[in-house]
């Protein structure tokens, strides 16, 4: 039982770490602010969620798990709020998003009414 829980916990932790690093890589590779937000989104949701879930399995039914759940809930509430604040501030300040396929240099997708 112990080992089974340990394996579950390690799988969660390792997957979370991998997703966190992918998000970090995205922050470096992607071409502009708005696309980089998607990269940061990966670490904020999947990375943080899985790592904290893995720690929760380690913690078992205890106060530690309650605190971890609180941290997770808090992160899931605040990360979209601050991302929206960032996107909105950048947009208001006239930061133009890169549109269309990067490297083609033409903006073929203007915001359109559905």
């Amino acid at each position: 039982m112990e080992t089974a829980l340990d394996i579950v916990s390690w799988v969660l932790l390792v997957t979370g770490s991998v997703f966190a690093m992918i998000g970090g890589l995205g922050l470096i590779r992607l071409p502009d602010v708005y696309t980089r937000m998607h990269g940061a989104g990966i670490t904020d949701t999947m990375g943080a969620g899985l790592i904290l879930a893995g720690l929760m399995v380690q913690g078992g039914f205890s106060q530690v798990t309650v605190k971890l759940i609180l941290i997770l809930i808090f992160l899931l509430y605040t990360s979209p709020t601050s991302t929206y604040a960032l996107a909105n501030a950048a947009f208001h300040r006239g930061q133009k998003p890169l549109l269309g396929k990067p490297g083609h240099g033409k903006e073929d997708d203007q915001p359109s009414k559905p």
Binding site: G41, T45, L76, S79, P80, Y84, A87, F91, P97
Partner: peptide, 9 residues
Amino acid sequence: TLTPGTVSV
């Protein structure tokens, strides 16, 4: 915003 790939601006 929470789903990666889309951000509300």
